[in-house]
Computed example of a mutant assay.
Amino acid sequence: MWERFEGRAFRTFLAVVEEGSFSRAAERLGYVQSTVTTQIRQLEEAAGRRLFDRLPRGVEPTEAGRKLALYAQRFLELGEELAGELQEEGEPRGAVKLQVLESFAAGYLWGPLRRFMERYPGIDLQVETGFQQETVEAVRTRRAELGLVPRDPDRADLRFDALLEDELVWAAVPGMAAELERRGYGGLPGCRVVGFGPGCLYTAEADDLLGRHGAAARTRAAFSSPDMLRQALLSGWGAAYVPRSVVRGELERGELAAVKTLDSRPLTHGLISLRHRELSRAGEKLRGFLLESFGRRQT
């Protein structure tokens, strides 16, 4: 039964999900409420189950409704992608979703993305954040067309385009760094280790080093943003195993110091995409622009 539905019905469905109300969705779309009610009823008949729970004030999607929302969004995005692909001449159009690591985006990405949007105003650039494994899964399941990760995931189904060389270093305020220089990993048990949480590659690398050297941090602290992590380090609250790029300015100004006697590890930030799936026109433009912005050649 699904073949009789067009994009308008799915757009209506998503508007109800986002607004939490049939009446607000109708107002947003410029429909009368009966049109929205009819389209949702038809979708529920096709699904064979209820898509919304009716609440005293508004509605919320059922489990089936939440599943349908994922496919409805993909359906609409594919339509936009197709429109962009079929427009072979003129200004590129369509949507492209990029998933990035927040710590890298904060330091390096917003300037290039602003220039990209100025050059291609017809492209709808959508940016989300995620750790390495989350981004790998988003690209593999086509929830994102491109991803930006701190290390090549080394998967046969993914293409990796290197953008920027970096390294993981132990960083702390100068006094704490000097103590760690003197005591090495033996100084970490008396120190807080600050990071981005268990889903983060940097935290996993720090845990591996601590395990190899038989060391354990006194306590742990996890922050969701690079700025929070930097402020925690600047306060002398702890040490962190982070990319040099995240604390580049603080290191250059002498506000933080890298601990040279503790291990550093190389990182190569880069773009990932599905190896055997051609990028949309918008996606190819974004890939080429980012490679150009970071001085890399396209292959």
Rank of each mutant, 00 (worst) to 15 (best):
L55K: 14
P56A: 05
P56I: 05
G58W: 12
G58Y: 09
E60Y: 04
E60A: 15
P61I: 06
T62F: 06
T62G: 10
A64G: 10
A64W: 05
G65C: 06
R66M: 14
R66I: 04
L68S: 01
L68Q: 01
L68H: 00
L68R: 00
A69W: 11
L70K: 12
L70H: 01
L70E: 14
Y71T: 00
A72T: 00
Q73M: 14
F75D: 00
L78M: 14
L78D: 08
E81P: 02
L82E: 15
G84K: 05
L86P: 01
Q87D: 09
Q87W: 01
E88V: 11
E89C: 00
G90H: 03
G90N: 07
G90Y: 02
P92W: 02
G94D: 01
G94K: 01
G94Q: 03
G94W: 00
A95C: 04
A95T: 01
A95I: 02
K97F: 08
L98H: 06
Q99E: 12
V100P: 02
L101E: 14
L101Y: 08
S103D: 13
A106K: 05
A106W: 08
G107H: 11
G107L: 09
Y108D: 02
L109Y: 13
L109C: 03
W110E: 13
W110Y: 13
W110D: 08
W110N: 04
G111H: 10
G111I: 00
P112R: 06
L113F: 04
L113R: 11
L113S: 03
L113Y: 04
L113V: 03
L113D: 04
R114P: 00
R115C: 10
R115K: 13
F116P: 09
F116D: 00
F116I: 02
M117V: 07
E118C: 04
E118A: 15
P121W: 12
G122Y: 08
G122L: 04
L125V: 12
Q126A: 12
V127A: 10
V127H: 14
T129L: 14
T129H: 15
F131D: 01
Q133V: 01
E134G: 13
E134H: 14
E134V: 04
T135P: 05
T135E: 08
A138L: 10
A138S: 10
A138H: 03
T141R: 15
R142V: 01
A144M: 03
A144G: 06
L146C: 12
G147R: 12
G147E: 08
L148Y: 03
L148I: 07
V149F: 11
P150A: 12
P150D: 06
D152Q: 06
P153C: 07
P153W: 08
